[in-house]
Every structure is written in C-alpha cells, then in structure tokens.
Design a protein around this nucleic acid. Sequence first.
RNA 1: GGUCCUGUGGUGCAGUUUGGAGUGCACGCCGCCCUGUCAAGGCGGAGGUCGCGAGUUCAAAUCUCGUCAGGACCGCCA
Length: 586
Amino acid sequence: MMRSHRAGDLRPEHRGEQVTVCGWVDGHRDHGGVVFVDLRDIAGVVQVVLDPQHVQGADPHAVRSEFVLRVTGLVRDRPDGTINTELPSGAIEVAAEQVEVLNASDPTPIPIDERAEVDEVLRLRHRYLDLRGQRMQSNLRLRALVTRTLRKELDERGFIEIETPLLIASTPEGARDFVVPARLAPGSFYALPQSPQLFKQLLMVGGMDRYYQVARCLRDEDPRADRQFEFTQLDAEMSFADAEDVMEVIGAVVAAAIEAATGEPAPAVERITWHDAMERYGTDKPDLRFGLELVDVSEVFAATEFRAFQADAVKAIRVPDGGDFARNRLDGLIERAKSLGAEGLVWMRVQEGGVLDAPVAKFLSEAECIGLVDCTAAEPGDLLLLVSGDRSLVRRVLGTIRLDLGRPPVGEGPMRLAWVVDFPLFEAVDDDGNPVPAHHPFTTPHPDDLELLASASGPALLAVRSLAYDLVLDGWELGSGSVRIHRADLQQQIFELLGISPEQAQARFGFLLDAFRYGAPPHAGFAFGIDRLVMILCGEENIREVIAFPKTQSGADPLTGAPTPLEAVQLTELGLNVRPPTKKGG
RNA sequence: GGUCCUGUGGUGCAGUUUGGAGUGCACGCCGCCCUGUCAAGGCGGAGGUCGCGAGUUCAAAUCUCGUCAGGACCGCCA
C-alpha cells in the first residue's frame, strides 16, 4: 500500500497514529536543522517535520518544491504557539520517520500557488502544473459535482443515458462543421456533431421515451470567452411531453445542480416572454440581477416636433441618481451608442419639479417633458438616457448600454434563473424573402399562431411565435429547447416556408422524415451548456477555467501544439491534396 | 475578415508619455548560515534576443511600419 491516508485529510483525531502519506512539496522551510515541508495532495496540505536526527531515507535539506514524497511518521499535536489556524490540518503535524523521494522535480516554469495571475498561454502550455493549483482543482471538482448531480436527477426521473455517434453526416445548416476525411470513401467526409439533435429525435421515434446525454458538441466557429470549439451539453429529449413538462424537469434538474454546487437553495425559476425580454432588457438573455430596465416612451413622442425622436421607437433608461454623471462620461455613452449603430444618444438630467436639464430640452414640448418624467417615473437627481430609431436597433443599443452601466460581476448577488418563452419561429427574412428559422426547422409553431403562419408572408411571418424556450442564468444563455414537429404535414409546410423543396428536405433530413412516417411520438427537448453553468457557479469569467485542456482564441492548444500539418503519407491514405498555405504558416 | 488591449531574466510588475549604458522592485532559483517555521529569516550570487523584423536617429525597451503570439469584443455561433 502506497499510503494509509490522504495528506490533507489528517486532523487532530489522527493524533498518535502512524501514517504514510504521499504528495507534492508545496513549500519547505529549512532551518538548518529541522526542515518543515508542506505536503500537498488532492485533499489539501499537511505539515511534515523532517528532523535530520530522526529521519531515515532522504536528506531533508535536499528536498525541493514539487518533489514527490512518501512520508511515514507519527501524527502529533503541534507545540503550543505554533498552531496554524489558516490550515484545516493546522493543529497537527506529521513527525517523519521515513522519507522517500518518489520523484524529483525541476523548478517549475509557473508557480503552483495562486498569488499571481500567470499569463494564460503559459498556464495552458504547462496545464499539468496549472491543474495542481487550488483554482483548477476546485473548478474541476465542482464541475464533476454538477455533472454527477445532473445525471442523478435525470436518472431518478426515468431518463436513459444514451450515446450518439461522433462521426455523422454533414448538414449545411447551422454552424460550420468540423469534418473528418473518410479513408474508406476517398473524397467523402464525416462531420463531428454540432449537437445530437437529429439522433435524439430518432431515439424518441425508437421508443426510448426519455433520453439524456452529457454530450460533447463541436462547432467550427471563432472561440470566445464563453465559447470553445468543443463544449459539453446536457442534452435531453422527452416523448409524450409538452413545453411545460420539459421546463419543469430541466428547471428542477438545473436547480438541483446549483443547490449542490452552492450549498444554498437554488433560485426560483422565473419566466419572461421573449417579447418582454426584448422590450425591457433589449436582449433575449436578460440579466435580471439588476434594474435599469428599458422604458418605451414612443407614445410620449408620437407627435413630436423633434426630428431625432420621429422614429419607429424611442426607449429610455432611467439611471437613479445618475444626474451627477460627468460630461465626459456622458460623451462616452454617446460614443458607445454610436459605435453600436445608433444615430446618437440623448441624455437628460431630471431636476426638481420634473424640469429636464438637457441640450435637447429646448426642442421638446412641455407635455413631452411631463410625459417622459411620468413614463419613466424619474425622480430629481436621476439621469435619463434615450435612444431612438428602428425598434430592434433601439433595443440592442440600450440593452448593451444597460449592461455597461450596471451588470454585476459573474457570481455576484443572488442568482436569477429564468425561462425565456414564446420565441419567434423566424428571426429574419433572407434576401429571397424566405424566413430564417430562429431555432431549427423542426421547431413547432405556437398553436395560437397557426392561422397567422398559414396566411402571412414576408416580414409579417416574424410575428409567428414558436414553442421554443431558452434558459437564462444571470444574463448567460445556458441553453435552449423546443417542442419538435412530429407530423409530416406541418413539417412539410415549414419546409415550404423556409424555401426548402421536398427534394432538398429529403436529401438533407430524409432519414428523419422517413422515421417520422412510422408513428413518431410527440416529443420535446432541451440542451444546455455545462461549461457555462459551471463557469458561473465557479465565478469565472471564461469557460477555459472550467475545462481541463482548453484551446486558445485562435483554436490552438499550447500544450500539444495542435493543430498540426499531416504527413504526406497520411494525406495520401486519406485521398487528400492540400493546397499550400496562402498567407501564414508553411 | 474587423476593432481595441497586452508582450521587459523562470514568474509577476515598474520603466515606454518626454529616445541617452539592460536600470529597479517582489517572488522563484543556486550557495553559505540558521532547530518551531508556515509568504520562515540573514548574507552572497547567477539569470536578459526588452516577442520577432525592418525603418527613423549619433543613439531605440521607449518613436514609425510590418509581423507573430495571447486576450476582450464585432462578424460568425440554425
């Protein structure tokens, strides 16, 4: 047996026991005679005392940081006055009798402790050292706890965990596919899944009733703080279930994971319509932890003489006590609005009696000033920020400025978890006049809007709602789901609207449409990003901190050097000819 | 594809605005001293392609251009 205990588990209750522990030298204090070693393992740190008079084996003075030691000795109380209250094991120490150096270590290129923020590319290049630090240890442990909880909750609800293929057929929709050349079919390629979407629907047709998977998904789109090429989703699908059933289950499961991770009761799952979210927060993923809501004041300026407000929409943010914003800060807000595409931004300071102090005040009627103050419930000392223009632009600009002004850091304050429901079925109309699906083409239209779907065309279709829903935590989109179309006639209608001919539909999704001919059960599902959830629970600003071996923003892995060119032999075997690089590399 | 920010001994920084000898700080590393420390302490020492390449200049870490790497964001992410 290598060890009798984990070093970091030792406590006063082990006093008098002969123990053997293994771990890394976290630090050492050499007094010339006695040497103190902080021995670190997965459980924590314990102080080992190496007295050259009594220690067998290794030379205590030769011990260095990150050496791997195996120590046998007696657990004893520390002398009076030397107890370390900072350490869970600080009341005791191990008086070493036998010390074995299991492995030496060069001085490490990055420090293992957390005192300084080390350049991330160095951390990634030496990730195996970075993982020894407290931050990654606790992040990855929390991640495991979250995944374990999700699995447990779904298992208890009758879900079956099923794996789906990684090598699948490419479909042109959605994100860019990662592809894998097929050696046995030169010139053909597999795609790596952007999500198990089609397969989980097939599982429902296959009578699996309730499916889930902790699924790796791959999308070849530029990485961001909250996006990697590969990420992990909790993917689920339910037969004979409607949107409420899915939201019930997923809400409860996510709440359980949050509770397990934080040790506190999970926040209630709130609900807001997509339309309300867009109107009040200017985004479909509102951060509900703070106010600064957008107020629609279009009515107030319906007949205004002021040219700038003669627009599709005028919206305002009331900044309580913002009247003392310095002029250069206000100028900064104007610049920000312009950089986001607005014509400009109008600010007004609210004074006693509802008088507005603003460069544009002279262009506004008294009724408009009164209406504005009334509509925004502004108090003296407040600041009003107004943007006008196309409604979607106004929402986006003020929604962004709202975040600039008040968004709390990740993990701060009580969490706010919400379903955003009644998403539009289509997000836009393309150049050919065909609507573009907001979710995916298998999303069921809202039953109340079926007539509109049948009668409307062009931009009027954008008003059609769907049975799609997003889960949003503190302003982060965790994931989305929908009730799927399971009837061929409705699916056909949607394909027609999308401008997909029956032949094209058959070519792209034929296997799914075929499957639906044989008694597909009504089904609905959801998928959400585990990386993002864990990131928020860890209070981290990017998902690389909750992934053991992430890639950089340019898609490189500083540890392994990926991606790399292939040997000519490999290319030949795969039937590939590679064009010489046009610009960089070589 | 674009915008902005960063790059200085092993690590984290200062120095760059206003060009003047690789200057400084903390940690780490090496050696010596030191028997109760826990960010141990004392003394001494080593360690540099100032990301890379051009240009301006008598002189460039510092100014200009290009380039590489990293980060945040836009585009993109059904």
